[in-house]
Design a protein around this nucleic acid. Sequence first.
RNA 1: GGGGGCGUAGCUCAAUCGGUUAGAGCGCUGCCCUGUCACGGCAGAGGUUGCGGGUUCGAGUCCCGUCGCUCCCGCCA
Length: 608
Amino acid sequence: MKRTHHCNELRPEHAGQSVTLSGWVHSRRDLGGVLFIDVRDREGRTQTVFDPSDLSAELFEAATHLHSESVVEISGKVRLRPGETENAKIATGMVEVMVQSMTVLNAADVLPFPVDDPEIAAKVNEELRLQYRYLDLRRPELMRNIRLRSRIATAARVHMEAQGFLEIETPTLFKSTPEGAREFLVPSRVHPGEFYALPQSPQQYKQILMASGVEKYFQLARCYRDEDLRADRQPEFTQVDIEASFFEREDIYALIEGLLKRIWKVALDQEIQTPFKRISFEEAMNRFGIDKPDARFGMEIVDMTDDFKESQFKVFSGVVGKGGVVKALNAKGLACVTQGQMETMTNFAISHGAKGLAYIKVENGEWKSPIVKFFSEAEKEALKSKLAIEEGDLILFAADQWLTACEILGRIRLYAADVLKQQGKLVIDPSVFEFLWVIEFPLLAFDKEMNRWYSSHHPFTAPVAEDVDFLVSDPKRVRGQHYDIVVNGVELGGGSIRIHQPDVQRAVFKDVLQLDDETIKSRFGYMLEAFRYGCPPHGGIALGFDRLIALLCGTESIRDVIAFPKTAKGTDLMAQSPAPVEARQLRDLHIQTRVPQKKESAPVEKEA
RNA sequence: GGGGGCGUAGCUCAAUCGGUUAGAGCGCUGCCCUGUCACGGCAGAGGUUGCGGGUUCGAGUCCCGUCGCUCCCGCCA
């Protein structure tokens, strides 16, 4: 390699040295007689000076016509910049390189979009940026994210290694499992008509590793789910996957708190406070209306059930009579809500099955509301004191079954906070991270359409010991040994202590989830078998690595922390995948495709 | 599967109620310029308004369809 220094290295003490820089033409300033080219590499940039009196006409001419992002190797002498021409904006701004020779390693065409101006580049259509991802990645903002990702991966490995964990790779070609996310399938050539599935997570393999006596396993595991995407979801993503034997919940909490403490230190040089607060699922729903609370601001949900159980307002008292609840939320300072915003919030309520959204606007000392006339003095007083109502507030109500009422106000709380943020009435310090353990989830949830219970986490989650007896008799009462780690309203990860007794696991599959014997045997037989031959109690957790990095980079979309992300429809705009394959490949795989004909857009018949 | 937003020059955007030859900045090309660093100056090129159809004397603008990107709901054990 001819390069002697990188582009963020030269300082006044290098003056007089002959150096060679390699990098990209970041910018060119041609003053006619003298030409400046800033050479940029991963580390930074350095100004080089082309003086025609020192250089051949050919070289000077070539430099004059270089496009941005051409790759060059430049040799020359470092010197202090002449008086008054230092540039304080860049780290190498005290010096410059007087060019003696230049090799153009790759002459770039005119670019499809600018990469040198951060403000413009950040606004360029993402479609174009994904098509030319290699250009997008050259932008310092994106490169910084990718470098941080690498440093955090290393920090995680160092931490886990120090805690005695072994990094073990598990197969990417797995088998289909009946529960959970839709899977990507891979046809087998050797076994006609049979398929592998890409793992949604290495869950079953890591439990088998516990049966194998590994005791402590971790992996930066690639996972695949064929579900519709969001800003924080990709079809392929990475988890910090962890499993340990003889661990109880407290051991997991301590391990993860230590890991995150180290990561925050490495990434942001920030000391986070441990242990993290813990909140039960029930309390999270009661206070925040969601199982991943954003606890950085107040506006908590308040229970008004007792205050309205005898109310003249039948909409409330009727619900309470049927075992429901009355909940309220004070959107502080949002009495100025627009009709459109009110409609959005009402639609949240309606989409959860409510009839509408009751509210009180507090304006000019008055309670403006279609329902307040039905309230007694005592009821108004209860609202006033429990919700700390003041001028300018907006009070929103949900009267429904417990979970529904909580969820409605949970959605509205987050929406109201967004509106207040936009108005500048709610300010959240971006450097604050509110970590929470959410615990004591119900083990099971009921699927009304399918008329059966399903695992709210996954079917390997162990019930809380004292609830085991109710597994069949009263499933909804059973709590799982499940925990989620949540920060600022983002679910960073989750896990559980697992079932390690074959009889309990079989009972969950068969008696609770109502899987038939054949399915249990074919899908989980090897696990049940492994549990019979000396399987230690164990548990684990998986952290969403992409979300973690996005959080530390301060970006909304995980596409900004993944080198080659896919679009919302799961395509790669650069490589143009997915794509059709040769008929021969399909034949080898014993596959025939049946794609419905795309309907032609029929022209509308013109009337005579 | 459902709903919202977007699509005009290479890029970012404008174009009044449907009305003249679709404009601007940046970039690009050429010329000028010896201390710039968002260099500056002069001139110029560059458009299937995503695509297809319809309404209309006339469509970037209105309607229908379609494609792509994006956000949300469902979904994601």
